[in-house]
Design a protein around this nucleic acid. Sequence first.
DNA 1: TAGAAATAGTTCAATTTTGTACTATTGTTG
DNA 2: CAACAATAGTACAAAATTGAACTATTTCTA
Lengths: 163, 163
Amino acid sequence: MNNLWIFSPKKGKERDLITLYIFHSLDREPKSGYDLLKEMSDKTGGAWVPSKGTVYPLLKSLEKEGLIRVAEVGKRSKNIFGLTESGEKTLKIIRSQRLESRERLCLFKNLLMEIFGAEMFSLQGLLMEIQFAAEEIPAEKRLMAMAILEESLEKLKAIGPAD
Amino acid sequence: MNNLWIFSPKKGKERDLITLYIFHSLDREPKSGYDLLKEMSDKTGGAWVPSKGTVYPLLKSLEKEGLIRVAEVGKRSKNIFGLTESGEKTLKIIRSQRLESRERLCLFKNLLMEIFGAEMFSLQGLLMEIQFAAEEIPAEKRLMAMAILEESLEKLKAIGPAD
DNA sequence: TAGAAATAGTTCAATTTTGTACTATTGTTG
DNA sequence: CAACAATAGTACAAAATTGAACTATTTCTA
C-alpha cells in the first residue's frame, strides 16, 4: 500500500492511520468500536469517518494479533477494548518514529501549497527560511524559538483581516 | 468515501487527492500517465506513489468525463494529456475551496499532534499557523508582514547555531 | 407502557485499489 | 548490432473498503 499515511515500526507490519488512531485512543482509555467510530467522527467534525465495515473487522484482526483485547463486555453486547502489552509496545515504537510522520505532514502541506498556490512567492521563501532556521534551533532553545514565532503570529493576526 | 482528503467543488463530484494532483499537474504542463506517476513519486520522495492500476484507469475516466483530453500522441504510444476547458474550470472551483483543504490539513496536523504529542509538532504547527495567517494578509499590508517575518527570522538566526 | 431512538455489532455485494505480470517501443551500451 | 534498460501502457486476480441492510439491546419519550 502506498498510502500517504503509513506508520511503520521499522520491524513489524506497517500500520495505517486508522490502526494508529485506534492504538492511540485505546492507550488513553479502553472503549468500544462504537465509541471509537464516534470519536473519530466527532474529533474531525465528520470529515473522517472510516466505515463500520472497516473498523469492526480491524478490531477483530488486531485482537487476533494480540495487540488489543476485550477488557470487558458491557450491556448491549458492548465490547470494551484495551491495548495489550504488545500493543503498548508497538504504539511506543511507532511514536518514536515521529520525525518521519512530521516529514510526511510537511510533504503533504507542501503538496497542498503547490496545488492551491501561495501566490506570494517572496513571502513563501521567507517562510521556508524561517522553517529551516527554526528546525536548526537546539532543543534547549526550543521554547525561545516558539516564543519568537508566537510573537510574529500575533503580529500577523493583528494586521490581518478581523476573524 | 470518507477519506480525509476529499476536495469538493461544491456542485459536482467530489475529487480525491490523486485527481486533484492530476488536474494541478496537467494545468501546469501537459504530460503522460508515466510522467504523472514519476512526478508524484519524485516530488514526495517515493512516499506517495499511487498504483498504475489506479492512475491509468483514472486518466481514462477523466477523459471520458471531458475533464482531460489526449493533446498528442508521442513515441512509444505515449499519450500526452492536457486539461480541457471543463477541467480548468473544475480545478479553479476546487482551488477556490482552499480554506476547506487548509482546515483539513490542520485537522490532520492536530490528529498527528495528539497521537505523537511532541513539541516538534507544536513548532511545526506554529509555522503552519503563521503561514496561514500570512496568506490572509491583504496585499497592501504585504510589506508589513514581510518585515514581521524578517524580524523573526533574524531572531531565530541569532539563537540558532552559527553558520 | 409502547414505540422511537440511540447504542452496538454483523454481514457482504458492490466498488475500488493494488501490484505485478504482461505487451510494446524506443534509447543506451558493451 | 544485439542485449539491456527505460519508457509507456494494459489487464486483472486478489485484497481492501465501503456503506447500508440487518440483528440485537437498552434508554428515552410521548
